[in-house]
Design a protein around this nucleic acid. Structure first.
Lengths: 180, 180
DNA sequence: TGTTCCTTTCAGGAAGCACTGAAATCATAG
DNA sequence: CTATGATTTCAGTGCTTCCTGAAAGGAACA
């Protein structure tokens, strides 16, 4: 054991902080708010079930903020509410499976962002369809249909990708159980 | 010709507005600012080369704003500066290939967002490596390495995807040229 | 070189978004 | 039913990000 206990604790804390900051930065990429990401970061990296007060203390944010963002995380399915016997408090813990988390976020974003876009594009196409004899309308229609083609293609690709992954994961799980 | 000319113009305008609003909404998904997206939207849907004043008028935004966002779009490679003979003004036109645009945005985002994340995660792993005898450190190390595994996998997948697409596109292009 | 036209820069201001903290609500135990 | 502990809500506030417009900069023409 090269490091003294206090040094080890400090080092762990440092990694935790770095990780939470990282999650914060990542939040824009995942399409969630920074604080939501930081809370999830703490829950993921510690791997423990924490109470609201734990999280308030670790991240130095207000009770209301924690409450609101935790409920969003639960709503998204990234975090679960758990209970500890003998305690009235709610505790919260993160999913641990990276794939599962990714899938959840991707689904949410598709529903909230991609689907409305597809609807709008289709609607635009309809409106342009009524101007078939207009050259400008034809050109614009072509641009929109190319976008639609691209997006639907990406979508089906993604769907197949997730299905495959689910299949793979199930297979791996079954094998592991049999070999026990 | 069912519709009168003024009606046609109005209808085209309506589609254009809807499209620009759509792009605006999409901007968060693509990781660019709303105005940048709207400018690109106008350029894409019209398919024309427009001047700064054209864009200012269509979107009702200030000269400075247009200037700054156009230069970002040019920097990203989504928009090209073109010149019209006999005019001192700069004109700007959008790429028309959806795939190309998507690739450009994806590359930018990877460079700006994914790569730093990978670096940080690796750095965290190093710091934890020095605490090999600590159980907590081991657990956290495992979580981080799972993330790394996931991200690098996604990255190589994406790279292969783009390479394939480039190959496909080239092939299609060659065939089309031969058949002329 | 001076003039004109066009573009870029940037300090100051506006708008939107997230956070706080206290009051209201809810749940459990006695 | 009341008291206590825990969570949620939301109006007010602070912060960040984006936008404006005027002034400076640059390029083409005469």
């Amino acid at each position: 054991m090269k490091l003294r206990k206090t040094d080890r604790t400090q080092r762990l804390q440092e990694v935790e902080d770095r990780f939470v900051d990282l999650w914060d930065t990542m939040s824009s990429l995942w399409g969630i708010s920074p604080t939501m990401a930081r809370i999830h970061g703490v829950l993921y990296i510690t791997g423990q079930a924490l109470s609201m007060d734990d999280i308030m203390a670790r991240l130095a944010i207000s009770r209301g903020n924690v409450s609101m963002n935790l409920s969003k995380l639960v709503e998204w399915g990234l975090v679960r509410r758990v209970h500890k016997r003998g305690s009235r408090r709610d505790y919260y813990e993160s999913l641990s499976d990276v794939w599962e988390m990714f899938t959840l976020v991707a689904q949410q974003r598709k529903r909230r962002e991609i689907d409305p876009i597809l609807n709008t594009l289709r609607h635009c196409q309809e409106m342009l369809g009524e101007l078939q004899d207009d050259t400008t309308a034809q050109e614009r229609g072509k641009r929109i249909s190319e976008l639609l083609k691209f997006l639907t293609m990406m979508e089906s690709l993604a769907r197949r990708f997730f299905e495959t992954h689910q299949g793979l994961k199930m297979a791996v799980g079954l094998l592991a159980r049999e070999s026990e």
